[in-house]
């Protein structure tokens, strides 16, 4: 199956054979395509991509939310100001954030080996992915929490809330719509990172696209993998936006 043919064949078939011919063409293409050899490559790759993305996103959110909360709580004028700690934490996060993933991947090879027992593979790649993504997540969470109206936090304080109660019952619930949006943005970013996982034989759609497109010159697989990535990003973004809107009670 050559994808480039699809684009010019559709108008061609319509002109030559009318709509029946188009139906016949699409029938053959779609059903023939699903059982074609290419799909045997693409389906597992899609699974690997989803696996890496979801696992890394969840792991980086566990660390990132905690750090994001710490950043907001300890900042000057925060709920529990600790300016020196805040500055140290911010510096470390910025430092980690500024290392490109591909370099971090190589830098961390030995650490990855020590932690996961392997250097390559889909599961293993989630470790450097998480390390690379959590500072980004932390800043994202920080941004979401900073959007919470200071007056509401003040009111919670005035009612005699402890710091924990403010975090759990005010800060996080009030920021939920924004946190959901941030989550989908981080997920798509991590999805982008997974394409670089091919370097460490992480597999996935990105690796498939690079391997087949670059090494075997099988452009149809490259295009198919890319289209799947595009669809995946769309699904994550749309789901994130609609869930965020649904959870946002500030919208009448």
């Amino acid at each position: 199956m050559n994808w480039s043919h699809v684009f010019w064949q559709v108008p061609y078939k319509v002109c030559m054979d009318g709509w029946n011919g188009l139906g016949n063409f699409l029938y053959k293409t779609v059903f023939g395509f699903v059982f074609e050899r290419s799909w045997k490559i693409l389906w597992p790759a899609l699974g690997e991509t989803i696996y890496m993305t979801v696992l890394s996103t969840l792991l980086s959110y566990i660390i990132g939310i905690a750090l994001g909360v710490l950043l907001v709580v300890t900042r000057k004028g925060g709920i529990k100001p600790m300016p020196k700690f805040n500055m140290a934490l911010g510096t470390v996060i910025n430092f980690l954030r500024s290392i490109p993933f591909i370099i971090l991947l190589v830098m961390l090879l030995n650490v990855t080996l020590a932690v996961t027992g392997r250097m390559t593979g889909t599961m293993t790649i989630s470790f450097p992915l998480t390390i690379s993504a959590f500072p980004y997540v932390a800043r994202m969470v920080e941004g979401s929490l900073m959007e919470v109206d200071g007056g509401v936090i003040e009111a919670a304080k005035a009612m005699g809330s402890t710091t924990w109660q403010i975090i759990w019952k005010v800060l996080l619930p009030e920021a939920t719509p924004s946190l959901i949006n941030g989550f989908s943005i981080c997920m798509t970013t991590i999805l982008g990172y997974t394409t670089m996982a091919s370097v460490a034989a992480g597999g996935g759609l990105g690796a498939t696209a690079v391997t087949y497109g670059l090494s075997y010159r099988q452009y149809d697989i490259m295009y198919a993998a890319s289209i799947m990535l595009v669809v995946l990003v769309q699904v994550i973004t749309v789901a994130g936006t609609s869930l965020s809107r649904k959870k946002d009670h500030r919208i009448r």
Binding site: D149, G151, V152, E154, A155, A156, K157, A158, M159, G160, S161, T162, Q165, K169, V170, P173, E174, T176, P177, K247, D248, H249, R250
Partner: peptide
């Protein structure tokens, strides 16, 4: 002390993601 000395504000400062009942219940919850 803060539970004995309540406060209301110019900008109301309600929890926007919670219902009216949950807002009023907040001090009791904590």
């Amino acid at each position: 002390m803060r539970r004995k000395v309540s406060m209301i504000f110019q900008s109301f400062n309600l929890l926007m993601q919670k219902t009216v009942a949950r807002n009023v219940r907040y001090p009791l919850e904590i």
